[in-house]
Design a protein around this nucleic acid. Structure first.
Lengths: 109, 109
DNA sequence: TTAATATATGAACAACTTTTCACATGTTAA
DNA sequence: TTAACATGTGAAAAGTTGTTCATATATTAA
């Protein structure tokens, strides 16, 4: 049977690197803003351009563009340019799972 | 074939309530801080008391206690009192899944 | 009871974030 | 080319957050 100290030591040894912790927390942090949560929700339904997201959320193009950059910086969304439009969609199914898992927690009784 | 406008309208209609969006974003937000990310990691390995978490992270008891409250307020952790100690652990497997899913995204090539 | 221990909490300050505003960049149409 | 359009970006204001410090509460031991 392990001592309490041995347990602590084991956890300390298995702790992720600062780099991984930072990227992980920034990823959650980026999901953790109502505007971006709504953007993620919208994009879980369809690929959308800035003007459409702007209309959906009732916010300025500029505000949306700033937020899309935050999402893109952490690889949560991908961008596809078509003429002067920029279409955004979720980067992969991981993001959708992450979002769904969070939703399940929130909707729990 | 649906028009662009019809797509937008459908998404607007299926958008979650402000209440759900807010709790969801607050949940992600709470995970989105390096200190709390490390706390979640530690508790994914074992139930731990404030003093142990404090030692593990090299932070004051007060700082840990404040953060545990944030985690508890959003039902991410549960507390069990034993004498004067308070043992914390993840609230359910949802939280562990959420954390694992985030980690997968971050560790992706 | 008093002292010691473990955790919790309010206030305050520094650090960070989000939106707005003004303007820049890049693309299409005339 | 010029005008119109779609998006991107830097700076700044207003708001939010995390830690520290001092102190409070609660439990145990003497």
């Amino acid at each position: 049977m392990k001592t309490r100290n041995a347990i602590i030591r084991d956890i300390a040894n298995s702790m992720r690197s600062q780099e991984v912790i930072d990227k992980l927390s920034r990823t959650f942090s980026v999901l953790g803003d109502p505007t971006r949560t709504r953007l993620i929700f919208a994009m879980s339904k369809a690929e959308l351009c800035v003007a459409e997201l702007s209309e959906l959320l009732g916010m300025s193009h500029s505000a949306i563009s700033h937020q899309m950059r935050a999402l893109k910086d952490l690889d949560l969304v991908r961008c596809r340019k078509e003429g002067r439009k920029a279409f955004y969609r979720l980067n992969d199914e991981h993001i959708e799972n992450l979002f769904e898992e969070g939703l399940k927690h929130v909707l729990e009784p």
